[in-house]
């Protein structure tokens, strides 16, 4: 674990010196995670790709100001979150209540999920309100702590706990309904 952190720190240092290989390695390390997170939020492949693209552009351009005492992935997810939020705002979509006005999009499931169980989870996941979905992905998929999520989303830990609890219960109910 420590080696990985040191490796990332080295890559960041090299990327700051405009080392193309280091930037490539950073991209390869994080693009899947960022893209998956954004994709689950916006539910459209091309929009997700654009947001991921902008996220990394902002990341590399602001890399000089990144505080190396902090966790890089948390910082990167903060940029991804802000960029996704900007996307929602520009498209005049309500972040909190998006699910109320958008139907269930099956393209994630149809294109990428073959296993029935995973399809059920994905289907249930996209029915959660965006913030709850974001919390679930960050906590369970990305394995961030409450504190780290609080840093990324700028919301209190207590809110995260409550909403995560609620989200899991809702997920359970949604999965039961699709069975």
């Amino acid at each position: 674990m420590k080696n990985n952190i040191e490796k990332v720190a080295d890559l960041i240092e090299q990327a700051r010196k405009n080392d193309e290989d280091a930037c490539q390695k950073i991209l390869n390390l994080y693009k899947g995670r960022i893209f998956s997170y954004v994709y689950r939020m916006v539910r459209n492949f091309h929009d997700a790709e654009d947001i991921t693209f902008d996220t990394f552009i902002k990341c590399f351009k602001a890399l000089g100001r990144f505080d190396t005492s902090k966790k890089f992935s948390t910082w990167l997810f903060t940029i991804a979150h802000n960029t996704t939020f900007d996307f929602f705002r520009k498209n005049k979509q309500e972040y909190e209540y998006l699910d109320e006005r958008h139907g269930i999009t099956d393209d994630i499931v149809e294109k990428s999920e073959k296993k029935r169980k995973m399809a059920q989870i994905e289907k249930a996941l996209i029915q959660l309100p965006p913030l709850d979905r974001e919390l679930v992905v960050l906590f369970h998929k990305e394995e961030y702590s409450y504190q780290e999520i609080s840093e990324i989303l700028k919301i209190p830990v207590t809110t995260i706990k409550t909403r995560l609890h609620r989200a899991r219960k809702k997920l359970s109910r949604l999965i039961q309904e699709t069975k």
């Binding site: 693009k31 997700a48 790709e49 991921t52 990428s112 995973m118 679930v136 369970h140 394995e143």
Partner: peptide, 14 residues
């Protein structure tokens, strides 16, 4: 649910 969420698929851009 927790197990399933840990195993969520990773997607990649084109």
């Amino acid at each position: 649910i927790q197990k399933a969420l840990y195993g969520l698929t990773e997607f990649y851009p084109e």
